[in-house]
């Protein structure tokens, strides 16, 4: 049982990293949102599995929040937003695909080396989960810097937050305060982003941040 529990948790956490890579190479916005929803769904399973093996019922709440908000409401809302705004359906990237993927592999290797080295005191499951979580965080960050499109930057940020929730769930007995607050912050963040996207739309007819860069404060 113990071995199986470990394998399943490992599988789910590894799945999150894999989907982070899938997010990296999407070149259409709708596909990107679908991949994000899949990642959130995987995260919900991963957290629920942690709740089961840690016998920590409060983690089910986190899993539920993840499932409802991040796997359903947010992707649907963004989907509708993209459709209504009529923005470019393609994802513009700053760096082309191959270097991005190579960079991503490097980041995963880095986080494995770093996390596995410093956490040798903890139990194996927590160690691996933290290493995976750091990979997801770094990949999310990579996505944010290699995209110019506001929607895909937001997806990058939310995928980064997925990594954080995995880390919080893997840290055994971590107080509930933090988990709920993370979920909350994502919600708040979405509201903020929503407002911004619409305002940006009002001004530029595009959600492409390249357009914003032409309006840098200092023109001289």
């Amino acid at each position: 049982m113990d071995r199986l529990a470990f394998d399943i948790a490992h599988f789910l956490a590894g799945g999150l990293v894999l989907i982070s890579f899938v997010l990296l190479y999407q070149d259409r916005l709708f596909a990107l949102l679908n991949a994000y929803a899949l990642q959130a769904l995987t995260l919900a399973f991963a957290v629920a599995w942690q709740a089961h093996i840690q016998e920590a019922p409060h983690l089910y709440i986190t899993a539920g929040i993840t499932l409802v908000f991040k796997a359903l409401i947010i992707p649907v809302a963004l989907h509708r937003m993209v459709a209504r705004l009529g923005v470019h359906r393609e994802v513009e990237t700053v760096v082309s695909l191959v270097p991005t993927m190579l960079g991503g592999i490097g980041l995963v290797a880095l986080s494995m080396v770093v996390m596995l080295r410093v956490t040798h005191g903890a139990d194996p499951l927590t160690r691996e989960d933290l290493a995976f979580a750091l990979s997801v965080v770094l990949l999310g960050m990579l996505m944010m810097v290699t995209r110019t499109n506001a929607v895909s930057q937001v997806v990058g940020f939310m995928s980064l937050e997925n990594g954080l929730i995995l880390a919080a769930a893997a840290a055994k007995g971590m107080p509930l305060v933090v988990e709920i607050s993370v979920a909350f912050s994502v919600l708040i963040a979405l509201i903020v982003i929503g407002i911004f996207l619409f305002r940006i739309r009002e001004r530029f007819d595009s959600v492409d941040l390249q357009a914003l860069d032409d309006f840098r404060g200092e023109t001289r």
Partner: peptide, 11 residues
């Protein structure tokens, strides 16, 4: 202020 500059700064 919702000027383009303000939006860019806030973003």
């Amino acid at each position: 202020y919702r000027t383009p500059q303000a939006l860019e700064a806030a973003w």
